[in-house]
Amino acid sequence: MADLLTVRNLGVRLFDRGGVVMAVRDLSLSIGAGEVLALVGESGCGKSVTALALLRLLPEDARIEGSVEFGGRDLTRLSIKELRAVRGGDIAMVFQEPMTSLNPSFTIGNQIIEVLRLHRGLRGHEARQRAAELLSLVRIGAPEQRLRAFPHQLSGGMRQRAMIAMALACDPQLLILDEPTTALDVTTQAQILDIVRDLQKRLGMSILLITHDLGVVADLADRVVVMYAGAKVEDAEVHRLYAAPRHPYTAGLLRALPRGGRRTGGGAERLTEIPGLVPVLRAPLDACAFAPRCPRSIEQCHKVAPVLEEMDPDHRVACFNPEPVPAAPS
């Protein structure tokens, strides 16, 4: 197997005011070399926690189980020093809000050069030149000039580009993008998506894309993992998932979207609602977490937790009563 990253049985328990939260439950996934894997779900489904857990960026008191294999090593067992070499080196991460991930009191150039110095040992003119190259890689015009800009002098889109440039500084094998375009306007988002798609093709890196936006997923992803209440409910190749979602939650999300010519008015078109709320699990569950909201739930769903099963080739679903495969359109 040419998998770059393999996560096995990842479990994360966090603690809040109400006690323990089962933020991620028995999650396994793998990302192949050059693959774009999207981790999709609504707020609180554990997708961001998963990403943070991979790099062990969670709060001190978080309990992590399972293994995260990357390049033949288990990231959960590395020392902090070893881990630091991986973070920002082989695995780079871009967060949702570029303003808070950039240091406001240093120029963009300083911050990129700092990364190059730490991970690549580049200095002086060489580092500066490489930094400018990185900025032009993310299509920032007049890069030499922009290196001297402070984060607050750039627009949101420009800052996010700078973040991506910084992430690329060490030619990472895996780039984690955590809601990279959520804070941006659509035209800016489209520009960033273009850049990411293009870079991925040119540099051949793998991407773990974390998002709630099914449009962004449709644009970038090769494969999709849908999460609900901390667990994976569906895992499929992107075209297959959109054409024939098998888990009722995935299907519900797609039907809830106001998309593609759905219009109210005389016809009284309605969006499909998913009634109820995403639960916060405080104890292991002997049932399907989605069952209370599921229109297809059967008795079994309330008694046994479903496990992922291969329903179609390369399409795994954790459901006792999956959606039927729609008849192929002629």
Binding site: G157, T187, A190, G215, V217, A218, D219, H239, Y242
Partner: peptide, 21 residues
């Protein structure tokens, strides 16, 4: 610019997004 939640459509459309901000 608004991405469509359908990979077939989204990937086949001609993108005509304005440059700049």
């Amino acid at each position: 610019a608004a991405p469509l939640a359908d990979p077939v459509q989204q990937r086949s459309r001609t993108r005509s997004v304005l440059p700049g901000e």
